[in-house]
Design a protein around this nucleic acid. Structure first.
Lengths: 193, 193, 193, 193
DNA sequence: GATGAATGAGCATTCATTCAT
DNA sequence: TATGAATGAATGCTCATTCAT
């Protein structure tokens, strides 16, 4: 369907509100107020509250899986591609803080709505594939369980929304570099800037 | 007030239900049904729904902070103590899967109820202290940001509830050892048992 | 039924609580707490909440009607007997402040529970009878409507629980004398003692 | 907020229901049914049950204090102004029987909600002021306690809702005249019409 | 497209009452 | 007689959703 003009505002507002109060804890009235619209008017844009969650989540989830697909199947040595994945993950996070936070809070790894789990599974599988290549190539220390390593990486990345302020002292580059270092078992000096 | 006999059942049921549906998404009727009790009867044990969340959360939070306090201030070299912290974290998780999951989902790192954030902050501070000692002693690769390293570790551990089955192929010992290895930058072979 | 030992305490507590919160706004738990008893234990004394209201109300209502019956049918000129009725009314009020307040608040003149209205009707009828005699004898100014005069008197008396503190500056004697004076159209000086 | 169209119906229904069952004894479902609306729809008009009580009470309370303020500070000899106050009081009662009954039942002279007691106090003070002038001018028999006289008058007036039917034999004019006569100690013949 | 009143199901909480101990 | 857990109905209030204007 062709989304009318204020669609973006609606989704952005939903992201903000859902992040603050959780999906179940948010009311559409709060979303409407955030957009500057009346409750009933929201239904010119959505057909249900779940619809809104889907829209919020699709934004980072689609970008993340699309880019991961490209990186995972693309050229370059495994270590480099793993770093790219981390960089991409952090970028998406920075660009869509609210949306990512909602996605992680409400959907990722939870037994909720099969339609949303698909993103989750594909993304984790793509990352795991690169991790496996890294183990095979020696870029990741041998002996590491691939899935455990993958989920450790994702855990570290996904936890960022709980504590990290992208505008704070520790910027995106440091975060990217160090998290990649940690997983790669590298003690290379941090590159800033 | 002296908590009567079925108190433990009530909290256990709440943990189960809250984990499944989220706190805001759970109804006390669901909790009551899980205990095998009528909705109104719950109020012989609690005085509000929040009360129940507090009870659920206090269990792992108190144990975790208490043990971390002991480990952080105790003897042993930093690497060893960091491993102990990881082991302890995984143990608490295994023993209280539902409660920990609820804690992480509803409270950890979220702008919710100051009374609950205190646990969070203390625990992270204790872990960070040991991480700093690890960096100072060379057990953790130099150049790592202490807070970022701490949160990477906690992220990895806290993400476990989203994907890890303690009864599955990869057992608690492997998880403990590998997550510690990753953070310590160690590529030592996994020690089991 | 033979009322067990703490019956009086229970009724007294009920009067206090009902006066404070209204009957519908009071819970038996509050009453129980006021007695120093557990909620369930109340049912050793009462068989329902209404039962308690009946008990509370019966105390002043029975005394009031009994004494009014005696005064109304007794000897003495109408003016004197009207004064006696006022004095008796004020006495009952002072002796049973809570109970009277509850009676007036919950029952008097309200379309509630026929069983309680009976007291009301009889008492008003007795007072009206004396008022009529007063009009006939000239003690009450002629031209006055008997029922209106009666209800004016009762209104004045019944409103006392809303503002009058028996222990305050204006004592029971002044109140008794002046209210009687007003209704009798007398401007005689206040007799105290 | 601009009160929408059925606001008046809602308040009128609330007055009716509250009068019948008392505030605490009334449910919003009863009010909704009286309006011909569903329970939840009420919340398009109010934000709480208390809100509704406030609305019901404000109607007679504001009119009463406003008119009493005018009369108390206006011209005319005290006796005349006291009669005007009585007339006004009876008029307000006749025009807003339910609302006045609720006000008297739930608020007047009760230790409830400070926001409502203010009306009460101001009104009584205004009436007392005129009573004092009446005593000073000789219109009210000397020797009368001003506050007691005021409260006797108000008690008589406020008790009307408990027994008086404005459409019955004794009409508003008779009630007005006689209650004023009684307080003024006047035995002037009743003027009807 | 916007409004906002209406709906009706659902929820946390209260409370009179029962009953086994 | 006292206790206090259990019951189950009721209540104030919320909220996703609908719809006439």
């Amino acid at each position: 369907m062709a989304r009318p003009s204020r669609w973006d505002d609606v989704v952005r507002a939903a992201g903000k509100v859902f992040r603050r109060n959780g999906f179940a804890g948010s009311s559409l009235e709060q979303v409407a107020e955030e957009v500057g619209m009346w409750k009933g008017s929201l239904y010119n844009y959505i057909s249900s509250k779940d619809d809104l969650l889907t829209a919020v989540i699709a934004i980072p989830a689609e970008r993340l899986t699309a880019e991961a697909r490209e990186i995972a199947t693309g050229p370059g040595d495994p270590a480099e591609r793993l770093r790219e994945i981390v960089r991409c993950h952090v970028d998406v996070l920075v660009d869509n803080y609210d949306f990512v936070a909602v996605y992680l809070q409400e959907v990722a790894g939870r037994d909720i709505g099969a339609q949303w789990r698909a993103y989750d599974r594909e993304y984790a599988a793509l990352v795991e594939q690169v991790v496996r290549e890294g183990i095979a190539s020696g870029a990741v220390p041998s002996g590491r369980d691939p899935r455990l390593t993958t989920m450790t990486l994702l855990g570290a990345l996904n936890w960022l929304t709980r504590w990290w302020d992208p505008a704070g002292d520790v910027g995106p580059d440091v975060v990217t570099a160090q998290i990649a270092d940690i997983v790669l078992g590298s003690s290379a000096p941090v590159r800033t800037g």
